[in-house]
Amino acid sequence: MASWDDVRRIALDLPGAVEEDGGRTRSWRVGSRAFAWERLLRRGERERLGDRAPQGPALGLRTADPGVVDALVAARPGVFFTVAGYGLHPMVLAHVERADVEDLDEAITEAWWCRAPRRLREELGGR
């Protein structure tokens, strides 16, 4: 199972990625664009999710489009989920502690890919 240390390591290993600590939550950005972030769930969201809700924050991830959100949630419903408003936008939430490191590596890299400038995407492609 994955941990927030894995999230941090994967995100910061991507070209141009930086961590921003907002005090209560962290986000990972490439340039000025967030590609992953800690998302604190609201009380009503926790109530609707019940025991599917993470104990702490969820991992928010940018996706290429809302269709990718649907595909992730359908493929791994124990790991990926949405709350009101998230399914309408190209963003998905992940339950870090239920994910495999490989799940997170792929999802975080794809999130970064959606936000990174071409020169950095080319750098990653050359690795």
Rank of each mutant, 00 (worst) to 15 (best):
E122C: 07
L12C: 00
C114N: 10
D70W: 07
R52C: 09
A2G: 03
L41K: 08
R115G: 02
S27Y: 12
E47D: 15
P54K: 04
S32A: 15
R98K: 12
G22S: 11
R39W: 15
G87M: 00
S32F: 13
R26T: 13
L93D: 05
T63H: 01
G23E: 10
R43P: 14
A2T: 02
A11P: 08
V68Y: 02
L49A: 03
R29C: 11
P15F: 11
R43V: 15
L12K: 05
D21G: 03
L72W: 02
A17H: 02
L59M: 06
F80L: 08
P15W: 10
A84K: 07
R33W: 14
D70C: 06
V79K: 00
P15N: 05
A116V: 04
P54D: 05
E19N: 01
R24N: 13
R52H: 15
L40H: 10
V30P: 03
L93E: 05
P15G: 12
E20L: 10
M91W: 15
R39S: 14
G85Y: 04
E102H: 13
G87C: 01
S3M: 09
L120Q: 08
L104F: 08
G78H: 05
V18P: 01
R121Q: 09
V96H: 01
P117S: 10
G22Q: 03
L61M: 10
G67C: 01
E19A: 10
A53C: 08
R62F: 06
A75L: 07
V73I: 00
D6E: 12
T109N: 08
H95R: 15
R43D: 15
F35L: 10
E19C: 04
D21Y: 07
D103V: 03
G126L: 10
A36T: 07
V92K: 00
I108A: 04
D65N: 09
R115A: 12
E38F: 07
D65Y: 07
T25W: 14
G60N: 05
P90K: 03
E102M: 09
G87N: 01
M91Q: 14
E19R: 05
E45G: 03
A34R: 15
G22H: 15
G23W: 11
R118S: 06
E110F: 09
E19V: 06
C114Q: 12
R121H: 06
R98A: 14
F80G: 05
G31W: 13
A71Y: 11
P57K: 07
R29G: 09
D103A: 04
D6Y: 09
A75D: 12
D105K: 14
G87L: 02
A11M: 11
R98M: 10
G125P: 01
A53V: 12
R9P: 00
R119D: 07
R62N: 05
R8D: 04
R48G: 12
L14S: 01
G85I: 04
A116N: 02
G44V: 14
A36L: 10
P66S: 02
Q55N: 12
R43H: 14
R26K: 15
A99N: 02
G44F: 14
T109C: 11
R29I: 13
V68K: 08
G56T: 02
R46A: 00
R121M: 11
